[in-house]
Design a protein around this nucleic acid. Structure first.
Lengths: 211, 211
DNA sequence: CGCGGATTCCACCTTTTGATGGAGGCTGCG
DNA sequence: CGCAGCCTCCATCAAAAGGTGGAATCCGCG
C-alpha cells in the first residue's frame, strides 16, 4: 500500500499551522510531507520543481500573492500537482476564485484530522473534496441565481462599501446620481434590505464583496 | 532548570492549530502541554480545575463564548493561570477587549516558534509579551487619544456596520434616535468622515471594529 | 469637592437616501 | 427578428441621516 507515498507541499504563512499539518499528516501511512512554503511565491516555485503530488494551500498570506493566484499559477502547468485549499474562511469571495483557479478541493481548518488525511488521498486520486459548508453554499448558489448581482451592481456596491455617496459614485463611474440610485434599488431588492449599510453588511456576509 | 515544568493548556477550536502548538512547544525544555480545549467553555472549565500555569487562548471560536470572555472568566478566579492570547488578528477590536479581560500577553499566529516559547516563559513569570504590531498599535493609541472611540461609540458603530438604522440602534440599546445621532456625530468628527458608510469603511480599515 | 470625559437627551434645519414607476438604448441569443 | 436582461436616465415624494448648538446627569480621579 505504501509503495508510492503521496508527496505533499505545505503552503501556509503560519509556522504553527505548518507544524500542525505536518504533525497530523506525518502519522498517516502513505503520506509524506516533503516541503513547506511560507509564501505563495515560494509555493509556486517549489511546485514547479516537480516531485509533488498534492499542495495544501492556504488562501491568505500576509504579503504578496494570495492562495488563489498561486493555485492558478500552479495548475496552469502541464503535469501539475493537485491543489487542496485548507483555509479558515468559507465565503463566496474566497471559495469561488479558488475553485475557478483550479483547486481540487476546499477544506476548512477546523476539519478533524481524519477528514484532512482522507481529503489528501482523494485529491491525490484527482477527485474533489468539499467542506460541507462550502458544498452547501455552492448548491444554494446554483439553486438561487436571482441573488447574483450584475457586474455594474457589484461595482456600485463596492464603492458604497468604501463610504462614497451616490453623488461621488456617479462621478467616479461617470453616471448620474439617479442611475446610481437605480442600481442600488435593484441591489436592495435582490438582497432583501432597505439601506446601503445593510446592503454592505449582508453582501459582505454572503461574500459578494470583499473587505 | 526543569525542576517544575510550565504546565500548559491549549485552547483553540482548530485541531490543526492545537497540533501545531503542541508540536512546537513540546520540544522545549521546561514546557509541558497537559491539556487541550476545543471550545472557550471547555477552557474555562479546565482552567478552573487548577494544575495549569499558562493558557494559550485563541480569540475566535466557532460557536459560543469567545476568547476574550473566556479570558475574563479564567482570570477572575484567585490563583488563576496566566492567559496568553495566540490569534490571527491584531485589530483594536480584538486586542483591547482581550487586554481588558486580563490577558498577560498577545501573540500572532505567524510568530516564529522561538518567540512563542519565549512568550510562554515570560507569561509564566507573570510578565507581558506583546507582538510588535500590537505594541505599535497601543503606542499609537496612547499618543493620539483623540482618535480613540469610546465604548459606547464603538458599540453604536458596530451596529451601524451591521446595517441597522439609527432608530433600530436606539431600540437595541434602549436609547433615543437623537442620542444615537449624537454618538455618531462624534464618531464622524473623530474619524474625519461625514456618513455612516464612510465611518464603517475607515473604522474597519483602522481595525476599530470587526467584520 | 470640583473637573473632565462619557453618556444621554432635545430641537431645528439641510442634505442625502430610498421608493415608485417609467422610458429608451444596447447586446446576446434562440 | 424579437425577446430578455442589462444599463442608463428621469421626476416626484417620503423617510432617514447629518449639522449645529445646547444641556443635564453620572462617574472616576486628583
Amino acid at each position: 500500500m505504501t509503495a508510492t507515498p503521496i508527496r505533499l507541499l505545505l503552503a501556509d504563512d503560519h509556522p504553527i499551522v505548518r507544524a500542525g499539518l505536518r504533525a497530523v499528516l506525518e502519522t498517516e501511512d502513505g503520506i509524506e510531507v516533503v516541503a513547506e512554503a511560507a509564501t505563495a511565491e515560494a509555493a509556486v516555485a517549489r511546485a514547479a520543481e516537480g516531485d509533488i503530488d498534492v499542495v495544501l494551500m492556504d488562501l491568505q498570506f500576509g504579503k504578496g500573492m494570495n492562495g488563489a493566484e498561486a493555485t492558478a499559477a500552479i495548475t496552469a502547468r502541464p503535469g501539475a500537482p493537485r491543489v487542496l485549499i485548507v483555509t479558515t474562511y468559507d465565503t463566496d469571495a474566497d471559495t469561488l476564485p479558488a475553485i475557478e483557479a483550479g483547486a481540487t478541493g476546499y477544506l476548512l481548518k477546523d476539519a478533524p484530522p481524519e477528514d484532512l488525511a482522507a481529503a489528501v488521498r482523494t485529491a491525490a486520486a484527482g477527485r474533489t473534496t468539499l467542506a460541507p459548508t462550502v458544498a452547501d453554499r455552492l448548491m444554494n448558489r446554483l439553486r438561487t441565481p436571482g441573488t447574483a448581482l450584475t457586474r455594474r451592481e457589484t461595482e456600485v456596491l463596492t464603492l458604497v462599501a468604501e463610504g462614497l455617496s451616490n453623488q461621488a459614485i456617479g462621478n467616479r463611474l461617470h453616471l448620474t446620481e439617479g442611475t446610481v440610485k437605480s442600481h442600488l434599488a435593484r441591489v436592495y431588492t435582490k438582497l432583501g434590505v432597505d439601506s446601503r449599510t445593510a446592503a454592505v453588511a449582508t453582501a459582505t456576509d454572503l461574500g459578494l464583496i470583499r473587505r
